[in-house]
Design a protein around this nucleic acid. Structure first.
Lengths: 109, 109
DNA sequence: TACTGGTAGCTAGTAGTACTAAGTAGCTGG
DNA sequence: CCAGCTACTTAGTACTACTAGCTACCAGTA
C-alpha cells in the first residue's frame, strides 16, 4: 500500500470499521473481507484485529463469542451506545476536515 | 484538540501544508497563522516546524533564507517539481478515501 | 494417513507522525 | 529593561498501521 494511504488511514480506519458495524454486527474475519469489497484491498489482517482489540478496550463495542460452521469460534462485535456517540464524533471530525480540504483544493491555496 | 482530529491529521497535514504552498512560497510562522485562518486553529507550532523539516528532507520543497523586518531570518519554502508530484499523489489518495467514506456514510454500511 | 487451503484469531516489534514543553534569538514599545 | 510579538528549534511521548509471523479448526483430496 502507498505510504500516504497508510498515514491517512490513521484515525480514519477506526471510524470506517465502526461505520461498518452500524446496524449489523460482524466478526473480525468478516470485517476484513468487507473492507476488501469496499475497496480497501490492502488493509492487513493483523491491523484489523489489533484495531478490534482497541475499540473493545475503549468500550465502543460489545463482544460475543459464537461457534463457526467452518473454523474456530468467531468473536462478534456489536456497536453499543458509546460506540455510536464515538462514531458521531468521528463523522463530525471527518466533515470538518473534508470541508477544509475541498476548499483548499478548489479555492486554490 | 480532539484526539480523533489529531489522529486524522496524520498523513493529511502534510498534504494541507503542501497545498498551501502551491503557487505562493511561505515561511513557517506564516504557514502556522495561515492554518489558523483556514480553520485549523489548534495545530501546534512545533508540529508545523517539524513537518517542514520533514518535507525539506524528502526534497519536496526548496528553501531560501531571507531577513525579516521584525525578528530572526525566515526560512521560505517553495514547492518544487517533486513536491507537486507528491501533492498530486496526495489528492488522488485523499479522493479515494473521501469517496469510500461518503459511500459508507450515505449508503449505510 | 498426510497435505493443502480456507476460515478465524492473535502477537511482538517497527515506522511514521502529531503532540507537549521547553528553549534560543531578534526586534519594538512602554 | 522588560514584556510581547516574531521566528525557528528540539527532546521526548503517545498513538496507530504495518510486517511477519504464529496457533487452531475444519473439509477435501491425493
Amino acid at each position: 500500500m502507498g505510504k500516504q494511504m497508510t498515514e491517512m488511514l490513521k484515525g480514519t480506519l477506526e471510524g470506517i470499521v465502526l461505520a461498518l458495524l452500524t446496524g449489523k454486527p460482524a466478526y473480525g474475519y468478516e470485517i476484513t473481507t468487507l473492507l476488501r469489497e469496499k475497496g480497501f484491498a490492502d488493509i492487513a489482517e493483523g491491523t484489523v484485529y489489533a484495531l478490534l482489540v482497541r475499540i473493545e478496550q475503549k468500550g465502543l463495542v460489545d463482544v460475543e463469542k459464537r461457534p463457526s460452521e467452518k473454523g474456530p469460534p468467531r468473536k462478534v462485535y456489536t456497536l453499543n451506545i458509546q460506540g455510536n456517540e464515538y462514531l458521531d464524533e468521528f463523522w463530525r471530525t471527518w466533515s470538518f476536515l473534508a470541508e477544509r480540504l475541498e476548499q483548499l483544493r478548489e479555492g486554490g491555496n
